[in-house]
């Protein structure tokens, strides 16, 4: 593993009961870049994403073999703490899921759990996180209003701010724009590109143009396997595998 790899899987396999959902996945995610995962529904994109921060622990039927290394350390190692992992490797979901609390409390929630009590410190974290998620200007005058009163796109950026508040290194996003209109989507895309200056972003998307717009690397998955992983320009202009070509040009099935 070299310095520029932050997250890596080695021969990762996952089963849900009898269903073999991930097959021998070996991939290295470069640090401070945006990596996109594409592929038809059910190919295992969300499963792979969830493996990267141990969200699959929450599914009883799932069983894995192989390794997932974060900064060189196996996150499934007996010593690793799933909660600590999920803070360093945050997740943003398809449907924005803010807590039914105020905007401020949504962002302050994580730091509070970590024992940040002092109001000044919390205020600073909230402001920084909201700025980081490109939401501050829109909400700074109504921080104590309910988060659920925000628009869908704002809620999604709030969820991103919430994950930034606990100082993650990696942010996993599972189809973060699929519930949003084109304008809100455009804002999230701009944000993703900006986030990659300081964080590593892995995004699952159904929208290939979105993958092409925001990511530097793209992985194409098919039926549980990672078929191809390469620079995004290469994947979309001249992929190496026929399966990839057929998928991105819509010649599938």
């Amino acid at each position: 593993m070299d310095n520029s790899t932050i997250l890596e899987t080695r021969d990762l396999n996952l089963w849900y009961g009898q269903k073999h959902a991930l097959i021998d996945i070996t991939v290295r995610i470069p640090k401070k870049t945006v990596t996109a995962l594409i592929g038809p529904s059910g190919c295992g994109k969300s499963t792979l994403l969830r493996c990267c921060n141990r969200m699959n622990d929450l599914i009883d039927s799932s069983r894995i073999t192989g390794n997932v290394l974060f900064n060189g350390e196996d996150i499934y190692d007996g010593h690793a703490d799933a909660y600590a992992v999920r803070e360093k490797i945050g997740m943003v979901f398809q449907k924005p899921n803010p807590f039914p609390k105020s905007i401020y409390e949504n962002v302050a929630y994580g730091p509070r759990i970590h024992g940040v009590r002092e109001k000044g410190a919390l205020d600073r974290i909230v402001e920084e996180s909201l700025k980081g998620a490109a939401l501050w200007d829109e909400v700074k005058d109504r921080l104590h209003e309910p988060a659920l009163a925000l628009s869908g796109g704002q809620q999604q950026r709030l969820c991103i701010a919430r994950s930034l508040a606990v100082e993650p290194e990696v942010i996993l996003m599972d189809e973060p724009c699929s519930a949003l209109d084109p304008i809100a989507t455009g804002k999230i895309e701009d944000l993703i590109i900006r986030l990659a200056r300081n964080y590593t972003v892995v995004i699952v998307t159904h929208n290939m143009q979105q993958a092409a717009r925001v990511s530097e690397y793209t992985g194409f998955m098919y039926m549980g396997e990672l078929i191809e992983f390469d620079e995004t320009s290469r994947i979309f202009e001249d992929p190496g595998e026929e399966l990839t070509e057929n998928y991105i040009t819509g010649r599938f099935g």
Binding site: M208, Q209, A212, F236, E237, D238, P239, T244, E245, I248, T249
Partner: peptide, 9 residues
Amino acid sequence: HQPMAKDLR
């Protein structure tokens, strides 16, 4: 259609 790969080429 925002074509990709060979279609775009």
